[in-house]
Computed example of a mutant assay.
Amino acid sequence: MASKEELEHAYSPSRWSHRMGPDDVINAHIKALTDGSNKAKECTDCEIGFSYGLSEKEKYDVFGAQTLPGDAPIFVYIHGGYWSALGREMSSFMVPVLCKAGAVVVAVGYDLAPQANMDVIVSQVKKAVSFVLTLATRRGSSGVYLCGHSAGAHLAALMLSQNWLQETMVSHSLIKGGLLVSGVYDLTPLVNTYINDPLKMTQENAVRNSPVTHLDKIAEFSEKRRLIVAYGDHDRPEFKRQSTEFNSALLYKGILSTLMVIADTDHFNVIENLRLEEYSLSQEIINLMNLNIDTTLDQMQSANLS
């Protein structure tokens, strides 16, 4: 059994970057997400700060909804940060690429630890996705696609296990697929590490909120979904293991899931690079949503008006 020190090293992403040191890679990550999200707000129609709850962070931002046709797919991004950092304000960096291809993008915020524990965070994200599904129904969207990075991948995976018909009177079939990037799908190794200090999870809480615990439900509601489980080839060994084992478990349950190892990326730029059209994961998302990167917003506006 791994020691506390070994687990903390294994689950500390900044220590595994092949590009720069721990502090530098985190600062560069925040800058890339912030700059990319600021650019998105300048070049794409956006509606900022829709409230889905009472707290300041229970909000989501919508991009492209005023420009794109009602049946455009909706891409939902749930940010990482080990449930205690980052936010929706820097979660729209992929917007220019995906809106150009024809997808509405929604960036979701949620309360962070220690202000919120894991149960509260999961409940908030569930509420946010409920609002998005209602939006998708109202627009006549062709489908909703969930994406999360790191802690966000954990939250997105849990959303795949929800009975949305029971929660929102919207069929779970409206969620057509998902991209889970460098996620944690079994929380139990984190309980005795510094990562859990602000969350204060017990073993019972970690088990209850681990996607691996809900594989049967994920399989029940994901029969027709297509999932991608991805990680960077310079990511941490534990994240590689968790992603590989989670993807294998999904396949065993009969879910159409693909494991992708993204060359020359670490835990950070594996998601940052969604700012780039030519990036392999950008192309995979576009294919997942059955879109065409060559379709410009002007073309789609013309088609919608004709």
Results as ranks from 00 to 15, higher is better:
Met201Asn: 04
Met201Gln: 07
Met201Cys: 06
Met201Arg: 04
Gln203Glu: 09
Glu204Pro: 02
Glu204Cys: 02
Glu204Gly: 07
Glu204Met: 00
Glu204Arg: 03
Asn205Leu: 03
Asn205Arg: 07
Asn205Pro: 03
Ala206Ile: 01
Val207Pro: 08
Val207Gly: 08
Val207Trp: 07
Val207His: 11
Val207Ala: 12
Arg208Gly: 05
Arg208Tyr: 00
Arg208Ser: 09
Asn209Trp: 00
Asn209Ser: 06
Asn209Met: 05
Asn209Ile: 00
Ser210Ile: 02
Ser210Phe: 04
Ser210Asn: 06
Ser210His: 07
Pro211Thr: 04
Pro211Ala: 11
Pro211Trp: 10
Val212Ser: 10
Val212Arg: 06
Val212Phe: 11
Val212Lys: 06
Val212Asn: 04
Thr213Asp: 06
His214Ala: 06
Leu215Lys: 12
Asp216Lys: 10
Asp216Trp: 01
Asp216Ser: 13
Asp216Phe: 02
Ile218Ser: 11
Ile218Glu: 11
Ile218His: 13
Ile218Gln: 13
Ile218Pro: 06
Ile218Cys: 12
Ala219Asn: 06
Ala219Thr: 06
Ala219Gln: 08
Ala219Val: 08
Ala219Ser: 12
Glu220Thr: 03
Glu220Phe: 00
Glu220Tyr: 02
Phe221Pro: 05
Phe221Gly: 08
Ser222Asn: 11
Lys224Val: 12
Lys224Pro: 08
Lys224Gln: 15
Lys224Trp: 09
Lys224Arg: 15
Lys224Glu: 15
Arg225Leu: 06
Arg225Asn: 10
Arg225Ile: 02
Arg225Lys: 11
Arg225Val: 02
Arg226His: 15
Arg226Asn: 14
Arg226Phe: 08
Leu227Ser: 14
Leu227Trp: 14
Leu227Pro: 13
Ile228Glu: 05
Ile228Tyr: 03
Val229Trp: 13
Val229Ala: 15
Val229Ile: 14
Val229Cys: 15
Val229Asp: 15
Val229Met: 14
Ala230Leu: 05
Ala230Arg: 07
Ala230Phe: 07
Tyr231Ser: 11
Tyr231Arg: 04
Tyr231Cys: 14
Tyr231Gly: 10
Tyr231Met: 12
Tyr231Ala: 08
Gly232Ala: 00
Asp233Glu: 07
Asp233Asn: 12
Asp233Lys: 01
Asp233Trp: 01
Asp233Leu: 01
His234Met: 02
His234Asp: 03
His234Ser: 04
Asp235Ser: 06
Asp235Gln: 04
Arg236Leu: 13
Arg236Phe: 00
Arg236Gln: 15
Arg236Thr: 15
Pro237Leu: 12
Pro237Tyr: 09
Pro237Trp: 05
Pro237Glu: 09
Glu238Asp: 10
Glu238Lys: 03
Phe239Thr: 08
Phe239Arg: 06
Phe239Met: 14
Lys240Gln: 15
Lys240Leu: 09
Lys240Thr: 07
Arg241Tyr: 09
Arg241Thr: 08
Gln242Tyr: 08
Gln242Trp: 05
Gln242Phe: 03
